[in-house]
Amino acid sequence: MGSRRYDSRTTIFSPEGRLYQVEYAMEAISHAGTALGVLATDGVVLAAEKRTASKLLEQSVGAEKVYLLSDTTCTAVAGLTSDANTLVTYARQQAARYRTTYGESMPVEQLVQRMCDLKQGYTQFGGLRPFGVSFVYAGYDTHRGFQLYTSDPSGNYAGWRANCIGANSTNAQSILKSDYKDEITLSEAVSLAVKVLSKTMDSATITSEKIEFATLSLDKSGRVRFHSYSPEEIEGLLKKEGVNTQQPEEEK
């Protein structure tokens, strides 16, 4: 293994100019539950695949893949949940601090940038490993309206109209690329997200226990509304989109 000499520390470049630890972190994410986001004209949708290990596992009270970061931003994660928790708390603190300082909501890209500054630090300063998580961020601000971003362990980020991270993400991205159209509405975006998720998930049947779903939109008074789908709503959505039709219930 030629990489051995250069991958023990995060801060060392290999002769080919690569940072192996960062690449390994990204590799870890490519096995994690999928998370995807679709930007619509009137909102953003986030969807994620939960990898529940056992039936005996207590379903946690809160969400484990989609997190609210502030009144106007939320995120879906793929990767190490424990690393994600640290970063989500950091993002919440940054967003709340911005609000107390400026009396306004933090612009979405700035929040993403703050997160990435922290992530980047762990690829440069020695003795620590990078965060093993990628994020899909959805948010709204007065400058640029609804926005969708992704970030990875290296601290890179980019804005998207639709994107996917985690397992089978290349597969999902190609479906998104072919099926995404401009001027897509939120309800169409929700359908698209369900479709992509159903095609990329390994399991034959999709149930509400295996996915998380959330949307960001504006209500009548112009306030940002975050909506996390309940298990019943997800079942309803799956039925509506006809996802499990070819797989009868009893086969499970």
């Binding site: 502030s70 708390t89 919440r92 709340a96 609000r99 107390t100």
Partner: peptide, 11 residues
């Protein structure tokens, strides 16, 4: 308070 309450609510 706004800061602490928003962190409380999210947590």
């Amino acid at each position: 308070f706004e800061y602490k309450l928003s962190m409380y609510k999210l947590r």
